[in-house]
Design a binder for these strands. Structure first.
Length: 428
RNA sequence: GGAGGGAUGGCCGAGUGGCUUAAGGCGGUUGUCUUGAAAACAACUGUGGGGGCAACCUCACCGGGGGUUCGAAUCCCUCUCCCUCCGCCA
């Protein structure tokens, strides 16, 4: 959520920002917000004056000893309550309308975020590692996986439907190894605290992270208990400190967590149906930071380095992109994407998205801190980044480490979690 | 699933319609005293909104929402969460 004071102070800057995001249709929303805000304050003054009168009158009545006079004064006050209640209702209506409009506005891009028309205008910052040269035709993972007995698409579809798959044997273990290795990397060397969160959350937790109301149709919802399956660990981790005022010295707080992620992918229906690149359920290890406003620029760079270290540790060629205004997520003000090369399917796969959300999520989730004991609370800044998305990193490992004989070499760093196994071969 | 008991400020805890400006204690900050510290004493010590150049004024908030009333922490309805016991369960 944007700061209402900011919109009041510089509505034109907000309009320019939404236009840069290619969301010009939100232009009128800014004016609507200003109009509602003005009406709200007008009405607020009126109703608060009445309330102050009522409070004074009630207090005076309580001091009266004479019964007749009391009755007379009480009779005078009759009707005032209904009048106030009526105005309160109108005020609530305006407030809700204001909130609803405010909720549709995305975060303002950082001035350093390049302005662009579409994802084609994302800026390639650099490429690290050289894609391996093959002296044979590298296979895509949807051929490699089933052949080596690692991925079973048919049974995934039987169990649940399209876009679901089963990992078996060394395939399942390889994913588990990746999760364990990544979590250890983040907690040991990079200073994150591991968290294991619920995978089902309340509606207001999704709202805090900026997923609701905008992305409702892409989420799974349990009607019975009115709970939502998390689309990313970013959601429950943002919610960890919802409605808290963090004490001086508590920041920065850094978390890493593994969760499955559930997405209906309605918006991407028909895209990437082949393989395990885009499923309704996938696993991810997430990094997350709560920090002071002045720390978030630096925190973003560090988190990007942490994500890069994960790609590099696996020996995968990757490239770093900075997203342009058109491709930036709703809550983000600046984002780096990491893509690894998958030689089998012949494309760069987005395995990490590292974003600085500024105070946008903190405002929605009401997460604040004090600089010093007794100081006024201020909103924290939040950052999130994948470290990394599992199915895509699994694809990259299988396709990059495949050999001419159809086997796959296990990356060095994962072997301790694979029981020393150094090569994936078809089961005899 | 069944039966009961709870939710009050940073924490503990009083408060059954107006004398509450939420008692009292703990914690915290500042001051006095002290070479310093402790102790003692004193003052201050929640969040958000609106108005004002400011000192300041004002409204709301006692788990959430709704209601009764001139007036609600207190009465009514409803929801959520926590605790105890029983049953079931990985």
């Amino acid at each position: 959520m944007l700061d209402l004071n900011l919109i009041r102070a510089d509505a034109d800057a907000v309009k320019a920002a939404v236009r840069n995001r290619q969301m010009a249709e939100l232009d009128p929303v800014v004016d609507e917000v200003l109009a509602l805000d003005a009406r709200r304050r007008e009405l607020l003054k009126e109703v608060e004056t009445l309330k102050a009168d009522r409070n004074a009158a009630s207090k005076a009545i309580s001091r009266l000893k004479d019964a007749a006079e009391r009755e007379a004064r009480i009779a005078e006050q009759k009707g005032l309550g209904d009048l106030i209640a009526g105005l309160d209702d109108r005020l609530r209506g305006i407030d809700e309308a204001l909130q609803a409009q405010l909720n549709t506005l995305p975060n303002l891009p950082d001035p350093r975020t390049p302005i662009g028309q579409s994802e084609d205008d994302n800026v390639l910052l650099r490429a690290v590692g050289t894609p391996r040269q093959f002296d044979f035709d590298p296979q895509p993972h949807w051929d490699l996986g089933p052949r080596l007995g690692l991925i079973d698409f048919e049974r995934g579809a039987k169990l649940t439907g399209s876009r679901f798959y089963v990992l078996t044997g060394a395939g399942a273990r390889l994913q588990r190894a990746l999760i364990a290795w990544m979590l250890d990397l983040h907690t040991r060397g990079q200073g994150y605290t591991e968290v294991y969160t619920p995978f089902l959350v309340r509606e207001n937790i999704l709202y805090g992270a900026g997923q609701l109301p905008k992305f409702r149709e892409n989420l799974y919802h349990d009607a019975e208990e009115d709970l939502w399956l998390v689309p990313t660990a970013e959601v429950p981790i943002t919610g960890l400190h919802k409605d808290e005022i963090l004490e001086p010295g508590a920041l920065p707080k850094r978390y890493t967590g593994y969760t499955p992620c559930f997405r209906r992918e309605k918006m991407a229906a028909g895209r990437d149906v082949r393989g395990i690149k885009r499923g309704h359920q996938f696993d991810k290890v997430e990094m997350y930071v709560f920090c002071r406003p002045e720390q978030s620029d630096d925190a973003l760079e560090r988190m990007r380095e942490h994500a890069e270290a994960t790609c590099a540790g696996l020996g995968l060629p990757y490239r770093v992109k900075q997203l342009c205004t058109a491709d930036l997520g709703f809550s983000a003000r600046m984002t780096y994407d990491l893509e690894v090369w998958a030689p089998g399917c012949g494309e760069w796969l987005e395995v990490s998205s590292v974003s600085n959300c500024g105070d946008f999520q903190a405002r929605r989730a009401n997460i604040r801190f004090r600089r010093e004991t007794g100081a006024r609370p201020e909103f924290v800044h939040t950052l999130n980044g994948s470290g990394l998305g599992l199915p895509r990193i699994l694809i990259a490992v299988l396709e990059n480490y495949q050999q001419a004989d159809g086997t796959v070499v296990v990356p060095e760093v994962l072997r301790p979690w694979m029981g020393g196994l150094d090569r994936l071969e078809p089961e005899a």
